[in-house]
């Protein structure tokens, strides 16, 4: 079963890369951008067919490795 996870920086954490991307977009003429925040996306294929169990497993991975909870939030967006 495949599980998708998005990791984003918490609101108060500075994201200099997002800022530079925002400025570049501005320079290209995309003037209607309020803010850009860069994150990470994972697709994890687990040997588990129960969606609830697969989600719990990946949640544990997020807490222990994939996200650093001091600065990042994780969101499991999809199991299929």
């Amino acid at each position: 079963m495949k599980v998708s996870v998005i990791i984003t920086l918490k609101k108060d954490v500075l994201d200099p890369q997002g800022k530079v991307i925002h400025e570049t977009l501005d320079g290209m003429g995309f003037n209607s951008v309020n803010e850009v925040r860069q994150g990470k996306y994972f697709e994890i294929d687990v040997k588990e067919n129960d969606p609830k169990k697969a989600k719990d497993l990946v949640e544990n991975m997020c807490k222990k490795l994939l996200a650093n909870l001091v600065i990042e939030n994780y969101k499991i967006i999809e199991t299929q």
């Binding site: 500075l14 200099p16 890369q17 530079v20 001091v70 600065i71």
Partner: peptide, 10 residues
């Protein structure tokens, strides 16, 4: 405690 982020000016 804490974490080390990307340098402020990249």
């Amino acid at each position: 405690p804490g974490v080390l982020l990307r340098n402020k000016y990249l």
